[in-house]
Nucleic acid binder design. Structure first.
Lengths: 328, 328
DNA sequence: GTGAAAGCGCTAACAG
DNA sequence: CTGTTAGCGCTTTCAC
């Protein structure tokens, strides 16, 4: 029922080696037999068994995408673009939700290595560097995205998070805000952004607030809860800078509930420029990440690494910029 | 470097056949050697090569998930739950975005069949039934979700869309609305919902509006555009029933822009009860689909089919129900 | 209970 | 240019 390379060889009156060669475009084959074989392949609708070639060390044409949570619109957009791009070059992507948990990151990496996928695109927290050793050990390329590489031997493509925190804060200051509260959880990228925030505040002679990470998680409800706390404080901060759009959306909701006018009574600045920022009302002013570019660079870089069998290294930084809408 | 079954056999002083048996819990093995082998496996951190077993016809422990668009929160939630559930039983899921295009559906199915994944969960449009024949031909189980099975030989788990359209409309009527406009695009599920809507309208002696499918797509912006058109009509409909939450969110935005009060001047009813419905303001009243249950049933059913090698058939219907929030 | 050996479908020397 | 052959790492009879 399932047709294999022997069936093709027989039908084309050649050996399986010849068939293999035309499939892979290797060796030297006369145009005549090449055409003949191709014709038979087409006729019998033959698709080479990927597991057999994988056994021989060939690519599986699937890549792994590790993200914290596909329900966060920033990551679902990223995933969408990556999947589209991968499909264009005939790769599949298996998606893994890590919730920023090292344990899950480890499990997924091991599972995917066992399946000998061709490479990783990773957008999780990765506090645990040991994970990367595992991947290096099997010589698989990995691209870190939306998070600067923690090591020189890893290729990363992301914005400069420190600068992101800085330009967001500068913009808020420029709009007249002096008392800015941060809404975020404690993960690597946020620590960078926070530092940028502090630097900007100091540069302008302003005092950063003492609390740093009010939330234990990064979703809508965490943003909402953090904002509720912040809005109850006296003096009330005049601006809320959330380190992702989902949390910013939660803050917007908190303000609406408390009947606090945005942006007049409190300004809200998000981060990411994910689809949610245009969906909510008022639409969110946010520090935009070049999502599409991140996706594009990461898959083209990864595919290149896979097919040329080289390991990319270095850090690539893309520009974040303020996307002005209605909440600041 | 990579340890294989021979290494284990040698280290445990048994044959590879024995090792294979303890891995797969097949045949008869004395407790002693079983323990011994297990110990060695652990020590050497041996993971059987999946491609080799796949070649022998075993499972690959990966399933395919075909959805229209991961950026739609309904599907990203679905995907998240499915992925979590799959991970619990050590399965990976490869996600494919079809945009409701038969062409893409076909390509993905062929690609995934070639990779001999173990089964499909499909939530796309599938106007083209021929796709299912392809899957049947290789004897792979498939679960249709969020879309009633078009054929008796396919297992589907979904709400009854006709009823969903009906209860949404009934609710709107009960709240005093007589002029209800539909916001949707022309796909199978929406046709069912639309029929339910018509039936409910007629039952109450009301005239359904003539336009059916204003949108060519199902996203936020399509909902927004459709709503803009509808809001400009005279007489203006008093209620907008969008067939997904994202479009409903677009309608909400359109109303806010036009300074039309929700729900006093126009009511908006969504469909799905996806996360977006709580994020926007005012929060969306919607026809809720039991997303988690759909996810749970579909993966448990699929895994069962895979491991018992049976093909599920029949249609399973879950209940949709009105989730009251603030837009009606 | 355990092992020898055949073979899953393919690739890659190597020989001709 | 083409074919023979030896594996890749595993499962599965079938003897013992």
């Amino acid at each position: 029922m399932k047709v294999n390379i022997y069936d093709i060889a027989k039908a084309a009156n050649v050996s399986i080696a010849t068939v293999s060669k035309v499939i892979n475009n290797t060796g030297r084959i006369s145009e005549n037999t090449r055409l003949k074989v191709l014709e038979v392949i087409n006729e019998l609708n033959f698709k080479p068994n990927i597991h057999a070639s994988a056994l021989m060390g060939k690519n599986t044409r699937t890549i792994g995408l590790l993200i914290p949570d596909i329900m966060n619109p920033f990551f679902s957009e990223l995933a969408r673009h990556i999947e589209d791009l991968a499909k264009d070059v005939n790769y599949n992507v298996v998606i893994c939700n890590t919730d920023y948990q090292s344990e899950k990151e480890r499990e997924y990496v091991e599972l995917l290595i066992q399946k000998s996928i061709d490479g990783f695109i990773m957008a999780s927290g990765f506090e645990d560097i040991e994970i990367f050793e595992k991947i290096k050990a099997v010589n698989l390329p990995v691209i870190l995205i939306a998070r600067e590489s923690p090591s020189d031997s890893l290729y990363s493509i992301s914005i400069n998070d420190n600068e992101g925190g800085k330009i967001g804060t500068e913009y808020l200051i420029q709009e007249g805000h002096k008392d800015i509260a941060i809404i975020a959880r404690d993960i690597w990228t946020n620590r960078q952004r926070y530092e940028g925030h502090i630097e900007a505040m100091k540069k302008h002679g302003l005092n950063p607030r003492p609390e740093q990470y009010l939330a234990n998680n990064s979703s809508f409800i965490d943003g909402y809860n953090s904002a509720k706390k912040l809005l109850a404080e006296t003096p009330r901060p005049t601006a809320l800078f959330a380190f992702n759009d989902l949390m910013a959306a939660g803050a917007v909701k908190a303000c609406i509930e408390e009947e606090i006018l945005i942006p007049n009574e409190v300004a809200i600045l998000g981060f990411d420029n994910s689809s949610i920022s245009e969906i909510i009302s008022p639409p969110l002013t946010t520090v935009g990440q070049p999502l599409k570019d991140i996706a594009k660079h990461s898959v083209s870089q990864l595919i290149k690494s896979i097919e040329l069998n080289v390991s990319p290294t270095g850090k690539e930084f893309l520009k974040a910029k303020i996307i002005k809408r209605s909440t600041v």
